[in-house]
Write a protein that binds this DNA or RNA. Structure first.
Length: 477
DNA sequence: TGAAATGTTGGGGCG
DNA sequence: ACGCCCCAACATTTC
């Protein structure tokens, strides 16, 4: 009897270490054939945006070279996954296909169908958990239902989940006698044709090695002061692991164990709580699969938004006239990422001050973030809009000026992204429209020309949002 | 993972 | 010395 041939279907687990599907395939002891398939059907209405595709290109390039170092390859294919896998298996004489699960509704529906079809064809088809500490269906409330509040979810996870030690990378991956056909990475078309991606390349190193470096650096330099510095957008005090986690260049189990290795007191700490917010997002997406498009709290479907393309565009371009919002939106456009606190502030401003539907903001983030993740993005926007599980109450409206003064007191973050305001002093830079003309002139700022006048008054728009919310509540009652 | 409005308190200036 | 007022500082309530 000849050695088994196992196909490892890579998806959002673009790493060799702690990769359960790859590890299991290697453990079978035969030939291993890694493949990545570009397939539209797994994305549903959520086609990957440009930043995500750019990241994917480089993550795949990195995975390719890691596999080559093991004497293997990464096949690249395009088409419906079932068609590609079936064809590959037939050509290779493969008897098994292993992969790590995805949890987005469209991907999940497709994977279920693929698994059934492969099994019906007599193949061994197995999926594993490669991207979560706990399966979304694993944690349940006393009553057996899904959690809708973070803290009990967090406690339950701490009490019941002991993330296993990360698996080692395989040391050898026996190759097939002849490799099946593969597209080139460039032919996958993930890189932009207009080269707007210089900013991304300047700020990020996608790939498993880049992820490991970032994790190591964060744990060594920033973890200890995380609670204090994570809110300061001018400092690199956050983990910046989100894109690596999304694409699976590092697993949450690896993060969990690295954090706890030299810091046992971090169990139950602020940083791991953030990692568990990610878990909570997947939990919610699994149990409430309609939430990427619709509010979890149904009464919010009747919220009186005032859709306005001009306001949305100004927000997207970082031209609202509110420095902290504009700085965040420009950081996003330039680097494919935005500091977490600034995300909350930009989102609050769009939804509450500009009264634009949260779905419009979610879509823009989806299109521009390198860490665009359906579960986390959905949860984050519904949290901001007050319409999700354990969300901020609607009446919690951030004041971007106050937030800037508190979390960027020297205006360093503002000056980095808004050089046209750099001449204003540390106080004035947070609210240019309040400065007298001579101050503006001395700083070389001409409101309405070199920097926009505010789209709306913060105090009036805040009141309008509270009134709109009151109207919605009255309508629902 | 808020901000603003409103309420309370206590020190100090002053007649 | 005393009452009155002002107001900063802090606490509570409201949205």
């Amino acid at each position: 009897m000849s050695a088994p041939v196992t196909i490892v279907w890579f998806r959002q687990d673009l790493r060799l270490t702690d990769n359960p599907a790859l590890h299991a395939a290697a453990a079978r002891g035969g030939v291993v054939v890694p493949v990545y398939i570009d397939s539209e059907e797994e994305e549903g209405a959520w086609t990957a945006g440009g930043a995500t595709r750019w990241w994917r290109h480089h993550a795949l390039a990195s995975l390719q070279s890691s596999l080559q170092a093991l004497g293997s390859r990464l096949l690249l294919r395009r088409g419906p996954a079932l068609v590609e896998l079936t064809e590959l298996a037939a050509g290779l004489g493969a008897d098994a296909i292993y992969w790590n699960r995805r949890y987005e509704p469209a991907a999940r529906a497709r994977d279920t169908q693929v698994k059934e079809s492969l099994r019906a064809a007599g193949l061994l088809a197995e999926s594993r958990n490669g991207s979560l500490l706990a399966e979304p269906w694993e944690l349940r409330t006393q009553g057996g239902g899904p959690f809708q509040v973070f803290t009990p979810f967090w406690r339950k996870l701490l009490a019941t989940i002991e993330p296993p030690t990360p698996l080692p990378a395989p040391t050898a991956l026996p190759a097939p006698q002849a490799w099946p056909g593969s597209l080139s990475l460039d032919a996958m078309g993930y890189l932009p044709t207009i080269r707007w991606d210089a900013g991304l390349a300047q700020h990020w190193q996608p790939g498993e090695a880049g992820a490991a470096r970032q994790l190591e650096q964060f744990v060594a330099s920033w973890l200890r002061d995380y609670a204090g510095t994570r809110d300061l957008p001018a400092k690199p005090g956050t983990s910046r692991l989100s894109p690596y986690l999304h694409h699976g260049e590092v697993s949450p189990r690896q993060v969990w164990h690295s954090v706890l290795a030299d810091n046992p007191g971090e169990r139950g700490g602020k940083y791991l709580a953030e990692l568990v917010w990610r878990e909570f997002s997947y939990h919610l997406l699994h149990h409430f699969p309609h939430t990427p498009g619709a509010p979890l709290r149904p009464q919010y479907a009747a919220f009186p938004w005032r859709e306005d393309a001009r306001l949305l565009t100004a927000w997207q371009r970082g031209r609202t006239g509110v420095p902290l919002v504009d700085a965040g939106m420009r950081e996003l456009w330039h680097t494919g990422w935005m500091h977490n606190r600034v995300r909350m502030i930009c989102a609050s401003y769009l939804v509450k001050n500009l009264l634009q539907p949260w779905q419009a903001g979610a879509r823009w983030f989806w299109d521009t973030l390198v860490d665009a993740d359906l579960a986390a993005n959905t949860q984050g926007w519904q949290w901001t809009a007050g319409c999700g599980a354990d969300a901020a109450p609607f009446f919690r409206i951030f004041n971007p000026v106050t937030q800037g003064e508190r979390f960027d007191p020297q205006g360093a973050y503002l000056r980095r992204w808004l050089p046209e305001l750099a001449g204003l002093d540390d106080r004035a830079i947070h609210a240019p429209w309040e400065q007298p003309e001579p101050v503006l002139r001395a700083a070389g700022v001409v409101l309405g020309e070199s920097y926009p006048l505010p789209l709306v008054s913060l105090s009036e728009s805040r009141q309008a949002a509270l009134d709109a919310h009151k109207r919605m509540a009255a309508g629902a009652g």
